[in-house]
Simulated scan of single mutants.
Amino acid sequence: MGRVTERRRVIRVRGGHISARPDTLVAEEPLEIRLNGKPLAITMRTPGDDFALAAGFLVSEGVLGAAEELQSIVYCAGATVDGSNTYNVVDVRTAPDVVIPDITLERNVYTTSSCGLCGKASLDAVRTTARWPIDDTQGDTAPPVRLDTDLLARLPDRLREAQRVFDRTGGLHAAALFTEDGELVDIREDVGRHNAVDKLVGRALRDGRLPLSRSVLLVSGRASFELAQKAVMAGIPVLAAVSAPSSLAVDLAAETGLTLVGFLRGDSMNVYAGEQRLALGATASTG
């Protein structure tokens, strides 16, 4: 199976001093995802948690929503001369009664590590119907999700402390799930931020924890439309990012009721949508 990091020779120039030494780099390899034996998508990813990545990807595509809908995930033989397994091809088999949506049947996509939506026919194609509405209730007894901004401001430090590979490579994105009380539930890393989120969601699917309706999703980079979509499809009510959101991410959040926070750094943050879930403590001005 592929390694998360690899070593490469590098020439370092520091203050006029030149030296040669090995450097630790994040690994990047293609992963082909097949659905019921048919090629569906190729993504550039960091090896590891491949089954979770494939499962999470299919949650965001509206194919899977419960553990019992997933029959199996297996590695397939890769295209090598000797027929050995490259561990770069996975086949996801759904349960016999799972209806595959047209959005999946109509597309065959190559995705890069920075853009998981490359190749989509149109914006409408990714506005899939979510199984779980993003609302503030869980049955008739649970109170609405409400976060203190001080708690939210502490989450990036907890994310950073939990990252393992980043300290060695500086080249991985991280995504983490927290409870509404700030407890770290899971964290995944990948060269692609969308892959890191898929790994989180895929693990939750396989553990029978969807929808993630009492969770906060924190990502280490920007909040793109695709990340907002993945949050909505997993039933996550709050998405926070340490960098900027895109305009389409804000539009989707406003449409679906998702709370979207950007530029979460220190004690500052921008709230772009869903402010009703945050205890802001003051009336916002609109100057």
Rank of each mutant, 00 (worst) to 15 (best):
G2T: 05
V4P: 07
R8L: 14
V10I: 10
V10P: 15
I11R: 11
I11P: 10
I11N: 10
G15N: 07
G15K: 07
I18Q: 08
I18T: 15
R21E: 09
D23E: 14
D23G: 06
L25N: 10
L25P: 11
L25G: 13
E29R: 12
I33E: 00
K38E: 13
P39C: 09
A41Q: 06
T43G: 07
T43W: 04
F51L: 01
L64T: 04
G65C: 04
A66M: 11
A67I: 05
A67K: 07
Q71K: 10
A79E: 10
A79M: 14
T80N: 04
T80G: 02
V81A: 13
G83A: 04
T86N: 12
Y87E: 02
Y87A: 06
Y87H: 09
N88Y: 01
N88A: 06
V90D: 00
D91C: 00
T94K: 05
A95E: 01
I100H: 02
P101K: 11
D102H: 09
L105W: 14
Y110Q: 15
A121R: 15
L123R: 06
L123K: 15
A125F: 10
R131A: 12
P133E: 06
P133I: 11
P133Q: 10
P133T: 11
P133M: 14
I134H: 05
D136T: 03
T137R: 11
P144M: 07
V145P: 09
R146F: 10
L147Q: 13
T149K: 11
T149P: 09
L151S: 14
L152H: 00
A153D: 07
L155D: 00
D157I: 08
R158H: 15
E161K: 13
A162K: 07
F166P: 03
D167Q: 14
T169V: 05
T169R: 01
G170T: 11
G182T: 01
V185S: 09
V185D: 07
D186H: 15
D186F: 04
D186W: 12
I187C: 03
E189M: 10
E189S: 08
G192F: 04
R193N: 15
H194I: 01
D198S: 09
L200P: 00
G202A: 07
R203D: 15
R203S: 13
L205I: 02
L210C: 03
S213M: 08
R214D: 04
S215W: 06
L218M: 03
L218F: 02
S220V: 02
G221M: 05
L227F: 06
L227N: 03
A234F: 04
A241C: 12
A244W: 06
A244P: 03
A244H: 05
S246N: 08
L248A: 04
A253F: 05
A253S: 09
A254H: 13
T256W: 06
T256A: 12
G257K: 08
L258N: 03
G262M: 03
R265L: 12
S268V: 08
M269F: 05
N270W: 06
A273S: 09
E275I: 10
E275Y: 07
L278P: 05
A282I: 13
